[in-house]
Design a protein around this nucleic acid. Sequence first.
DNA 1: GTAGGGTTAG
Length: 515
Amino acid sequence: MHRFARPTVCLCYPPKNSNGNLNFVSRKEQFLSLLKDCSSIKVLNQIHAQIQTYGLGRDGYVMSHVLRFCALSSPSGDLEYARSVLYHALDRITSSWNIVIRGYALNDLPREAIAVFLEMRSRGVKPNKLTFPFLLKACAHLSALQEGRQIQADAVKHGVDSDIYVQNTLIHLYGSCGEISDARRVFDTMFFRTLVSWNAIITAYVGKSLLDDSVRLFTEMIFCGYEPDEASMVVLISACSELGNLSLGRWAHCQVIEKGLVINCRLGTALVDMYAKCGAVGCARMIFDRMRERNVWTWSAMILGLAQHGLAREALDLFLEMKNCSVQPNHVTFLGVLCACSHAGLVDEGYQFFHDMTHVHGIKPRMTHYGAMVDILSRAGRLKEAYKFIFDMPTEPDPVVWRTLLSACSIHDADGNSGIREKVRNKLLHLEPTRSGNLVMVANMYAEVGLWEEAANMRRVMREEGQKKMAGESCIEIGGHSHRFFSGDDSLVDCEIIYNFLDGLNLNMMAINHE
DNA sequence: GTAGGGTTAG
């Protein structure tokens, strides 16, 4: 109540100058200080009404403070209110438009940010160098390449394209859209660069999976005398996790400690993800447990890491713990949860989680979630159910979903499922008639049941299409050295021992299966 | 004339 009372008192008894009139400047200052102390939209409404009464509703400076509160203070801000104030009260003050664009961009409403910019342009308000960074960020968020290019042209038109902030966000935009050559062009033409420029271009390379290049750029950055910060390390570490390069990842972790960088939420999450992806799930857990602040991404990375290592029980326990900590799961969390169900053969639980994801948490399933459900059903050998599940999907299934089921068809006994196998095979070949991986899988399936002519036919299609299946490739790190090897590779040292060991493993698994 | 910006997570 106290907060509500104070502005009213001030407004009723405004200071007066020697003539007994309200001093205009001091009234303005008074409103500014009220706005500074403003605590809620309700109070703001009162102040705003008073501002209008005193004829200051079109004062750019005062109104920019009103808008600042509406658009940028969370969680009590109100962007729609800000937009209506902007559209009705002000028309030509660039900074006010910038604030609202910024508010939308920061609150994950990129479409609205772009809409406000278009409105601004249609009213003939000139943008300045501060208009573009958040606007371009909004485009990056949407991967809106065309709009981004047009906005870049607008920045050029207004002579602000050489601004460092604009250029850095342009790199970010092109990186987010996967346009690495455009990102690089901006980076190369920069007269002056900052650490952020380097971070942005390296991120662009990592996003495009050009991992060796990204590590090279990182080295170049250090060579140029830049001190990597938290953001640089996050990018490098995520490159390591995609490369599966544990020793480089460890080196990066050491650098973080040596440089005394703060392991914030993002950096911690990157480390958890890297250790998990590089097979050191124990290290991932250690980092996770030591983190003081965790968000949904941190929990998700850990849950997915555990699930992918077959530690299904631990993954699901962690999911419960996360909910107990009142952290709202997102689509990645559920991917981890479904992955855990798939590894542990928990079909009913999988269904339940899928249901909860949609109906309790309001998360719209993505193709990867459908894929995970099909994987759960397929691994459990419930092929008919998997087929029905795909059939009932509201969107057109992608080839990955069909491939999951088709490979399950070849693993599980075909009894009673041959009809499904035919259908799935036809669907997949219809969607991707020339993909070598599909043709090989189908050819092998024919061969297994002795349909040699059909198998040969598939191989012929492959030849005619000029396709050669890329050999499966992987790498393993032993004693700090990375060893790359291929499927069926017989050039390895001790290759005979390795293959004998693998055969032994297969026999053991078959024996367990028949117990 | 006043105020205001960028990069980082499966």
